[in-house]
Design a binder for these strands. Structure first.
Lengths: 234, 234
DNA sequence: CCATGGCTTGATTGATCAATCAATCATAAT
DNA sequence: ATTATGATTGATTGATCAATCAAGCCATGG
């Protein structure tokens, strides 16, 4: 038995797949057991409960992020910006080979679980941080092709949003087209950034002050949106 | 006793809120009944089953998209591009008033249900199509500030991806910051598009041909990604 | 006055859920 | 050979799930 028993790995693998395809709540322990060819006692020998299994799955995703997602993207190109798009292409492949049923395994869980499982949310945050962190590394390596005033962390958040939002639309549409469309626009943005970095500093990056979008709102408002009839939506 | 009974509306409202916060599978009928102050027989009088309730909730979201999402965004500004960002701000408010637990109600369900409920997926597609369609209308109204070669449908898909991806990150982080970051970058993209539309046509929009990102892949490959050890990830 | 039909009541069903546990097996250390 | 430890078995638990249904309520129209 390897350091972490083979049975344990098989359970995690099937649980990860099922959580990804059906979600956490919709996946029954019995289904995991059947698919993994294991008895319930074995599962509860390794994991005290379903929650712990979820944590194990997320830890596995975190461990696999480097070898199965980031390294392949880095291997696809030596150009740092192309690596960003190679990263997106990794997820595109995931969509294609699964018939648009599987995109980002962590993204699904992030929306499903929200803040109801604090430990899980911390791990998902860690996952996203590692993901965007690596993108920032690449952006830093392409320093000469990006405007100096550009906030690289924000840009990495945009890249992640495009991936997750694109995957969601692809899953809803049953087609990669919306994903491709969003990525194509991101590509266009990078082209514009590159050409702008070659010209004058431009006012396009003058920070967001005077920008009505990021105003107070924060702790303002009676925290209730209602129309004339007293209807609430949120 | 309005055309569609008040009880029915109350059930739909509570179901929508619970599906949004906890997801479809994680929400029990009994919880909906308790929160709506209704007996099970009443619910099953209006909806043959939980699936039908889901459909009803999605139809309600579709019906409320116009009055509670799109019209407020249009009312916030007469400038068509500002309307795009006002639309994003609507969701930002939703995040804030809910402590980052509620973003886009349809997005959550889209990722959770995938293609397991065809009728539901069709409605979610319709929702996204209406959403991006309106954005395209606004983009068309700002025709003079966008490069002629720009694909407006793709851009609307990007806007939706930014919203959904931003909401997901905000939910995972328990903070609107990632959402704001992604939106700020989208804003920057729009600024660049505007300044470019004032200059020469630029090669930045020369379609995607010769662009390695959108190549074959389609029906190619043994449809399996494995590393040296035979490991599969997707 | 009754009859009709939309709506509500709430106990109840069987299925499925996550989780338990005493017993057994396998392996390796002593 | 003996014991200890880890891993596995699978029947079983009580809780919760979605869904059912016979009975009653009540407003309207005849």
């Amino acid at each position: 038995m390897t350091p972490k028993s083979e049975t344990r790995e098989r359970i995690l693998e099937e649980a990860a797949r099922l959580f990804h395809e059906q979600g956490y709540s919709a996946t029954g322990i019995s289904t995991i057991l059947r698919r993994a060819g294991v008895n319930s006692g074995s599962l509860y020998h390794f994991f005290p409960g379903k929650d712990a299994l979820l944590i194990g799955v997320l830890e596995r995703h975190l461990a696999l992020l480097e070898p199965f997602i980031l390294l392949p993207a880095e291997g696809a190109s030596s150009d740092p910006i192309e690596r960003v798009f190679a990263l997106l292409e990794v997820y595109r492949r995931g969509l294609l080979v699964s018939g648009c049923t599987r995109g980002c395994p962590v993204g699904n869980l992030a929306l499903e679980l929200g803040d109801r499982k604090p430990r899980a949310r911390a791990l998902m945050n860690e996952y996203f941080a590692a993901w965007t962190g690596r993108v920032q590394t690449w952006l830093a390596a392409a320093d000469d092709r990006l405007p100096a005033q550009l906030d690289r962390e924000s840009l990495s958040r945009l890249v992640l949003a495009v991936m997750e939002g694109g995957v969601m639309q692809a899953r809803a549409a049953g087609s990669v087209d919306p994903f491709d469309a969003a990525v194509a626009q991101l590509r266009s943005y990078f082209r514009l950034l590159a050409s702008y970095s070659r010209r004058e500093p431009a006012e396009a990056f003058r920070s967001a002050e005077g920008d009505s979008f990021l105003e107070p709102v924060e702790a303002a408002e009676p925290a209730e949106t209602a129309d004339a009839s007293g209807w609430r939506y949120w």
